Amino acid sequence: METFGRGCLYIIIGIAVLLFIALITQSHINIPFIIAIPLIILAFYIAKKKTDEKSDR
């Protein structure tokens, strides 16, 4: 459950960064699914890796 929460947090932070960039540039940012899906998988992979490191201590 901790991995899911951490993964969601990483995704929310990523969306917030994209929103901030869009506000600064005053433009629309379109991300195709072929790029978004691997980024989501990467966020959960990094979250799992961090959770495993924490449980090893």
Rank of each mutant, 00 (worst) to 15 (best):
M1H: 10
I24M: 08
I34W: 08
G14I: 00
A22Q: 07
K48R: 07
M1Q: 10
C8A: 15
G14T: 08
I24P: 05
F33I: 08
G5K: 12
L18Q: 07
Y10N: 10
L23P: 02
G5V: 05
I37F: 14
G7Q: 00
A47H: 02
V17E: 12
I11T: 12
P38H: 08
I37E: 08
F44V: 06
M1P: 09
L23V: 00
D56G: 05
L42K: 08
D56P: 04
E2N: 10
G7F: 00
T3P: 01
M1S: 14
L42H: 11
L23Y: 06
D56A: 15
L18H: 03
C8H: 05
K50C: 02
L39W: 01
M1Y: 05
I11E: 06
I35G: 02
A43K: 01
G7D: 03
R6N: 05
Y10F: 08
I21L: 14
I34K: 11
I34Q: 12
I34P: 02
K54H: 13
Y45G: 10
E53F: 09
G5H: 04
A22R: 05
I41T: 12
A16C: 10
I31Q: 00
T51N: 04
G5Q: 06
R6C: 00
R6F: 04
R57I: 11
K48F: 04
E53L: 15
I31N: 01
C8W: 00
H28S: 07
F33R: 11
D56E: 15
A36C: 04
A36D: 04
I37K: 04
F33P: 03
T25Y: 07
K48H: 10
L19R: 11
R57M: 06
F20C: 13
R6D: 01
I12M: 10
I31F: 04
D52Q: 14
E2S: 12
I11N: 01
A36E: 03
F44L: 13
I35W: 10
F4A: 13
